[in-house]
Design a protein around this nucleic acid. Sequence first.
DNA 1: TTGTTTTATTTCGGCGTCCAAAAAAATGTT
DNA 2: AACATTTTTTTGGACGCCGAAATAAAACAA
Lengths: 419, 419
Amino acid sequence: MREKADSDLVRRQNRLLLMEALRQHGAMARVDMGRHTGLSPASITTISSQLITDGILEEASATHAPAEGPQRRGRPTTQIDFNPKSANVVAVKVSIDGLELALADGRGAILARRTSRTTTYDADPAVFGKLVADEITALLAKARVPSSRVARVGIAVQGVADSQAGTLVWSPAFRGRNISVSAAIEDRLGIPCRVANDANMIAEGLIGSDRERYGGTAAVIFMGYGVGMGLIINGRVYHGPTGAAAEFGHMNHLPDGPLCRCGRRGCVEAYVADYSLLRWASGQAMTQAPSSNAIPHEDMLALEAAAHRGEEAAVSAYAKAGEALGFGLARLIAILTPSRIVLAGPGTRAMALIRPHLDRALEAGVVDELRRNVEIEVVPIATDMIIKGTIDRALRHVDREIFALGPLAKRVRELEDIS
Amino acid sequence: MREKADSDLVRRQNRLLLMEALRQHGAMARVDMGRHTGLSPASITTISSQLITDGILEEASATHAPAEGPQRRGRPTTQIDFNPKSANVVAVKVSIDGLELALADGRGAILARRTSRTTTYDADPAVFGKLVADEITALLAKARVPSSRVARVGIAVQGVADSQAGTLVWSPAFRGRNISVSAAIEDRLGIPCRVANDANMIAEGLIGSDRERYGGTAAVIFMGYGVGMGLIINGRVYHGPTGAAAEFGHMNHLPDGPLCRCGRRGCVEAYVADYSLLRWASGQAMTQAPSSNAIPHEDMLALEAAAHRGEEAAVSAYAKAGEALGFGLARLIAILTPSRIVLAGPGTRAMALIRPHLDRALEAGVVDELRRNVEIEVVPIATDMIIKGTIDRALRHVDREIFALGPLAKRVRELEDIS
DNA sequence: TTGTTTTATTTCGGCGTCCAAAAAAATGTT
DNA sequence: AACATTTTTTTGGACGCCGAAATAAAACAA
């Protein structure tokens, strides 16, 4: 309750409501919009026709009629959907081994992709933003989309992002700290840009894919080259006070535990991440500084195979990971009692090895009353979910901050008044 | 964004906006309401006069004019405030050593109090609700307020409450579990009733007392006979999916650590709560079951004195508490990065003994980047804050769910239409 | 073919709440 | 007493919602 209510708010809210129904369920007829939003048919007509005039929505061409189900009688429906040309957005995923970019249209369909294998670790912090801007320019050139048609850029990174400042406060993918990213893109391309944590974007993607399931209070834990978490609280992804994400991976498990990439000792990541598993299994000292390079996929497959063969060092590495993860989850549950915990990422391939130890730790670490209401679920791969989530979030933002505002006609009139 | 917007929503929202301004800043003139809410003078006149007709607000009697500041010219203001008779609420605090009750008027002023020293631990779960109902009846009789004038009862308890079911899922103050509370009060007195965690109510009280300071993302940690936490996320107190509170006290610190009242081992509470400190200091085994009785105040004062004298067992107990609390906070910060952590309750008396160990643990347990933005603050006593917070929450609820709805006149008209 | 039934969408008139501007109220100042 | 200043109320217009009636576009039936 912070904003005063007037006809302006009513318009914004109901336009948004209609757009949200469309984002969630895809193209639908006006009747269905009424069903989803609770608005009267009269209002739906008014609002949808304005959105169409504004170029945000469009009626489906009658050519590909629905034709699904038994042809019912009565006037046929006209499907309405987002106009793909309403706006474009760009999603960028930054990881240790390079950049991944995607361009999407107003419906969220991906028009073009681009990958670049830059090793970012030693990148000059002053130059990194420009590098990303150049990659985006190249992507747009390939798709022949002018930058003026792009409404927003979303950037997903591992580590702590400050979305207000548009910087990457700390990331395992970089030696440097406080690396500015947004500024270069906004200055060079003139497109608003937002930096966010990659695990948060997975959470965003999950909400987009199944609001029913992930819309309450849930935690998404990403296991792989690192350990990240996206937190969904009351249906929305939680971004901390400065926009920094939750750092489950760098939550302490045991004081004086193994050395983590963040420089502290005993973080969950220092037990569960790829490099940690390899370190245990190869018998290195736990104070051995972790490598800053990307770990080859084959190495992890080999480790899993070794564990499945019963090689003691490998088995014990996964046991330690399971215990650390279990106690980490127990602590998370004590603080937030989420109704669902999603384990995602390549690290979940070894879940069979991890799970028994995880469960035992969970049982030891939290009272039954709290544990009972939490459902733990494993989603093997979530790599592309990061891109999907980033696109989703960017489009929702455009919906809320631009499309919902209202009749362009009116704003044009106001501007003309001034001149 | 879930509710459709129409004139009904506009009215509710703006009435609520006006009431919230009043709750936060106290009596004010119509001009000031305009300033706080952003509404035009015309609308303020309309809304406030309706609220006055509804008996929710009242104009201050001109007798005690403001007279503050230099008499300015122009038409003098008329102060408006809540009508004390608009509604009453009752707050009940349940703790190990008894019940504490308070009756408040529509402005939140306390009209009557009552305390009863019932030992609840072995109370019959089936009877407890009735016992509370009887106490409320006695309180109302004393104040000569009929129960029909009471709009809501709020109950604050230690432990896990299920506010949806109106039960006390688990509490250190009771041997039994799933104790029903709301039902008896709603059935016998006909007043809506809500059960909530006591630390959450402290958080509610803090928000009420200084929204500026506590309105963002903050954690309030209560240290005393137990350890509780109230979480404020984006300006509102977080109640988990089932209405259960955060259970920071029962977050694991070390696997296989000391036995806790909850039956698990190594909880933060098992290091920091009164009984835990005494157990360490008196040299008992850490697997010794904690006493379920209230601990005399004098025992804690004696322990503090011993530590200040430098007696080793006592000093080391506080050191262990500091370390556990520090790592607990470090884990909390990793998950949520609150911008403020408030330490409250009688346990903070010994903060000087605890603090150095707490700080050291905090440093070892969380990366600098996250820790830097957290302010830790100590508020010595917060006992009455629980009652204040409970009253506050009840009144806000009445504002939102009853007062904001709208002109009684209209609803009466509707009812007459039916008959 | 033509009328009937059914369902979807649009049009029309009324209602509630907001706002800006003008008017009224209440006091100080000259 | 006339003017200045500030607060509050009144008045008339705008906007967006809704219900009811009208219109549109099909399937079905004779």
